[in-house]
C-alpha cells in the first residue's frame, strides 16, 4: 500500500471506453473507466463474464481488433499511450507494461525454449547481447522459483507441467522489469493448490520488484488474497471501488453485496444462498440509468434514468448508486 505522500501514479486511466460496432450491433463493452495506480500497488478488477474487465485490460495493451472503438486517456509513467502508433505500442508491450494470461500457451511460443523466449524479449527491448540476456533469463527463472532453473531454461513449454508453465509465463512478463503488470484471470484455470502458489509468488515478486499490478478476476477469493484495492465492474462500469477491506467487509453497492452473498464460503451449510436474480445484461441493449437496476431489489425510479451519481466516502471508497448512502446507513 502506498503511504500518504502522493507520488505521481504509474498508470492513470481516464474515461476509458470501448465499443464494438459491427454491421447492426453496437456493443458497449466498457463505458468510462477511471483509475490510477501507484507503484507497488495491486488493483483487482472484479467482475463476472461479460462485465468488460478483460476488454479493459486488452484496451490498455492495445490488443483489441481494429473494429473496436477505444477512447479515453491512459498515462503510463506520465506519458499518454492510448493512440500511439503500432510500433511505439509494441515497444511498450513486454517492456514497461506486460501481461500474463489465463492460459500460459497464449504467451509462450511452442517452438522455442523458455530460455530463448525470455532472452529474445530482453534483447529486443534492451539491445544487450545474447549471453547477458540468457544469464538474465536464468535469474528470472530462479526468481519465479522454478526448480533446477538451469535445466528448465532449455525446456520447451510442452515439456513443463501446468504450474511450471505459469511460472515461466510470469518470468517472461517480468523480463524487462515492467512498471505495470496486467494479469488477465491468471489463476482461473489452476487447481487450488497451484493457484495459491501463484498468488503468493505474485505478491512476493511485487514486493521485490515494486511493479503495479492490475489483476482481473471473477474469483472473490483470489481478489481477497492479492489486492490492495478492488474495483467491482458491472456492464462495463466500475460500480464500486475501495480498499480490499472496505469492499469485502462493507460493500455499498447492491451488486457487490449480492456478489459476496452469493459466493459460497465455509459455514453456509443449511442456509439458502441469497442470490442476484436474473442474468447479466445484454451489452448491446443497455438500459438507461443504472445497468443493474433490473436485477436490483432496491431499485427506485431514479435508478432507471439519467446518469447515476457517484458517492464517495471520506475513506475514499466509491459507489455508483442512487441509494448507496441510505443502504449503508440501513
Amino acid at each position: 500500500m502506498p503511504d500518504g505522500t502522493m507520488q505521481p501514479p504509474v498508470l492513470r486511466v481516464e474515461d476509458l471506453t470501448v465499443r464494438f460496432t459491427r454491421r447492426n450491433t453496437d456493443v458497449a463493452a466498457v463505458n468510462g473507466v477511471d483509475f490510477s495506480l501507484q507503484a507497488g500497488e495491486t488493483l483487482t478488477i472484479l467482475g463476472e463474464s461479460g462485465s468488460g474487465k478483460s476488454v479493459s485490460l486488452k484496451a490498455l495493451m492495445g490488443l483489441l481488433p481494429a473494429y473496436a472503438g477505444v477512447s479515453g486517456k491512459v498515462w503510463l509513467n506520465g506519458k499518454e499511450i492510448l493512440g500511439l502508433p503500432a510500433a511505439a505500442l509494441a515497444k511498450l508491450r513486454g517492456g514497461a507494461v506486460s501481461m500474463i494470461f489465463q492460459e500460459p500457451m497464449a504467451a509462450l511460443d511452442p517452438v522455442y525454449t523458455i530460455g530463448e523466449q525470455i532472452a529474445e524479449t530482453i534483447v529486443q527491448h534492451e539491445g544487450c547481447d545474447n549471453r547477458t540476456a540468457m544469464k538474465r533469463a536464468l535469474g528470472l527463472l530462479e526468481q519465479v522459483k522454478i526448480p533446477s532453473a538451469e535445466r528448465r531454461l532449455k525446456n520447451f513449454p510442452h515439456e513443463m507441467s501446468g504450474g511450471m508453465r505459469h511460472r515461466a509465463m510470469i518470468a517472461l512478463a517480468l523480463a524487462c522489469k515492467p512498471s505495470v503488470l496486467l494479469a488477465d484471470e491468471p489463476t482461473t484455470a489452476l487447481d487450488v493448490t497451484v493457484q495459491i502458489q501463484i498468488l503468493l509468488l505474485l505478491r512476493q515478486l511485487q514486493a521485490e520488484l515494486g511493479m503495479a499490478i492490475v489483476f482481473v478476476t471473477h474469483d472473490v477469493g483470489a481478489a481477497a488474497e492479492i489486492s490492495d484495492r478492488i474495483a467491482v465492474m458491472y456492464a462495463g462500469r466500475f460500480v464500486e471501488t475501495g480498499t480490499t477491506r472496505q469492499v469485502m467487509r462493507e460493500p455499498m453497492h447492491p451488486y457487490t453485496q449480492g456478489l459476496l452473498s452469493s459466493t459460497v464460503h465455509g459455514g453456509m451449510r443449511g442456509r439458502a444462498l441469497e442470490t442476484i436474480p436474473g442474468s447479466p445484461p445484454n451489452l448491446a441493449e443497455l438500459p438507461p440509468g443504472c445497468a443493474f437496476a433490473p436485477r436490483c431489489r432496491y431499485a427506485v425510479d431514479a435508478c432507471r434514468q439519467g446518469d447515476i451519481p457517484v458517492v464517495t466516502t471520506e475513506t475514499g471508497a466509491m459507489a455508483r448508486c442512487v441509494r448507496a448512502e441510505e443502504l449503508v446507513e440501513a
Binding site: R271, A272, E274, T275, P277, G278, S279, P281, N282, R295
Partner: peptide, 16 residues
C-alpha cells in the same frame, strides 16, 4: 427456505 427471497424459482425475471 421461507424467509429468504427466492425470486429465481417463483417469478424468475427473464431479462435477456
Amino acid at each position: 427456505t421461507m424467509d429468504v427471497e427466492r425470486p429465481t424459482l417463483t417469478a424468475a425475471p427473464m431479462l435477456d
